[in-house]
Design a protein around this nucleic acid. Structure first.
Length: 483
DNA sequence: TGAAATGTTGGGGCG
DNA sequence: ACGCCCCAACATTTC
């Protein structure tokens, strides 16, 4: 009898460097690739709208890659355990292999599925690969997880070694029978209204797109990364986050590619370091969420449970729509809405305005990013927001309040980023582009701007917002004193 | 992976 | 020629 194994694809939508797939091909004569749509099991973090768009296109690519290899991706929907169980029995497969994920809820689910299937005498094997090192592997001298990035990175950097990424299989031996599969469209992952039209010109989801994005980044941008990464108008960032999130690319492949360019002499090791460090942040966030599984909704520093947040629905709405009156903030929020991404520097600026000037709970910002980012990733999103709010690991000191005007002038000095995303300010000279309310009547008129009409006045005055934030944090300090 | 307030320095204008 | 003031420019500290 020919042995069959199911490879359960999740957020590892690739054929190359896929250890579960590789192992299944070694252990069995026939491989059944399966994807299960089961958003409920990720609640409250079901994939958001932008993520679903990406997932649709990534699955489409994966299915087509399978077809080219005379195999077929089975798509089903429903509870994962039941779905696996029924395909196992239908196909008379001997087991399931998959690559591990580290979001707390998924860890619990996968553990329980593994236990259940093993008790039913199926073979279950799981594999690493989504991050550089397993989240329990990088620990400090006393065996505890790091909560500060720099020592974490030093340790990881020193210990990290990788073998060569696995090549893309030329063929994937398929079962003789076809098993039932939903059509991709039946998952209804694409939006009903066409808010996604700009996504198509911005992104190419899937393994091929990931490969091209990586090649482009490494040959054209990585050496200048340190110098360019903070300029939102120049797009010096990698744009790899979504590809990494969906596992169309592994961090090991990125690292390997960097090493290869260094060996060839096309890149200096020193120039590559700042980007590798960013990959380190990605591991750091995953390790944090894994070890502190409550932090997707609760502050890591528990004293922040009593922080005097001031939820305000209309201000939140204005922030979401890019109508705060701070040009760089509005540009970022509109870039996000239109393209499913936002430049990283700008993410920090918009987040700071929400949680400091407006004192709106960071969880609200996290939810919005979750729904709108194509690279929405629970670990990264959680760490980023907690960092900004001052309640997370290695967090920004509470008094670090970004000035959205100065940040704009510093990182978008020509105002090009603002002009691209906030076209109603397009004609304003750069002197006022980050502070239109200070422009003269004449300058505004010449630029066709009517403040409070064609473009809003600031939602809150910077000085006032800053002081309010500092007071709120003082209050927290006072309240938690001696506790 | 800040900003603002405060302190210090040094060159140029000017009496 | 000299001291005084002004005020950038830069450095430090405080939030």
């Amino acid at each position: 009898m020919k042995k069959k194994l199911i490879v359960w694809f999740r957020r590892d939508l690739r054929l190359a460097d896929n250890p579960a797939l590789r192992a299944a091909m070694e252990d069995a004569e026939q491989v059944i690739p399966l994807y299960i749509w089961s958003p409920d099991e990720e609640s409250p973090w079901e994939p958001g709208g932008a993520s679903r768009w990406w997932l649709h296109h990534s699955l489409k690519q994966l299915a087509s890659d399978m077809e080219q290899r005379d195999n077929r991706l089975i798509i089903r929907s429903g509870p994962c355990q039941k779905t696996l169980e029924s395909l196992l029995s239908e196909s008379e497969s001997s087991g399931v292999y998959w690559n591990r994920l580290y979001d707390p809820k998924l860890v619990e689910r996968d553990k329980s599925i593994k236990k259940y299937l093993k008790e039913a005498e199926f073979e279950v094997k799981t594999f690493p690969g989504a991050i550089l090192k397993e989240p329990w592997e990088v620990v400090n001298g006393s065996g505890k997880p790091y909560q500060v990035f720099t020592p974490f990175w030093k340790k990881l950097r020193a210990e990290y070694q990788h073998s060569s990424p696995l090549p893309k299989p030329r063929e994937i031996p398929s079962p003789r029978k076809h098993y039932d599969s939903l059509a991709l469209d039946e998952l209804k992952l694409l939006p009903e209204t066409s808010w996604d039209k700009d996504f198509y010109s911005t992104w190419q989801p899937g393994e091929q797109g990931a490969k091209e994005a990586l090649a482009d980044f490494i040959s054209n941008k990585i050496a200048e990364y340190q110098q360019q990464r903070d300029k939102p108008a120049e797009e010096g960032t990698s744009l790899l986050a979504a590809h990494l999130h969906f596992g169309e690319l592994t961090p090991r492949q990125v690292w390997e590619q960097v090493d290869r360019d260094i060996e060839k002499g096309d890149l200096s090791a020193q120039d590559a370091e700042p980007y590798l460090r960013q990959l380190g942040w990605r591991d750091f966030s995953h390790q944090l969420l894994f070890n502190f599984p409550e932090t997707d909704t609760r502050p890591l520093r528990r004293e922040f449970e009593s922080f005097p947040w001031k939820m305000n629905a209309s201000q939140l709405k204005a922030w979401q729509k890019g109508l705060t009156g701070y040009p760089v903030v509005d540009a970022g929020m509109r870039q996000l809405w239109k393209t499913g991404t936002m430049h990283n520097r700008v993410r920090m600026i918009v987040a700071s305005l929400l949680v400091k000037h407006l004192l709106i709970p960071w969880q609200e910002g996290a939810k919005w990013f979750w729904d709108t980012l194509v690279d929405a990733d629970l670990a990264n999103n959680t760490m980023g927001w907690q960092w900004t709010a001052g309640c997370g690991a290695d967090a920004a000191p509470y008094f670090r309040v970004f000035n959205p005007i100065l940040q704009g002038e510093k990182f978008d000095p020509e105002g090009d980023y603002v002009r691209l995303w906030v076209p109603e300010l397009g004609e304003l000279p750069k002197k006022w582009i980050h502070r239109p309310w200070e422009a003269s009547e004449k300058a505004l008129k010449e630029a066709g701007i009517e403040l409070g009409d064609t473009y809003p006045r600031p939602i809150i005055e910077h000085q006032e917002g800053r002081e309010q934030a500092l007071e709120a944090y003082d209050e927290l300090k006072e309240e938690t004193k001696g506790k």
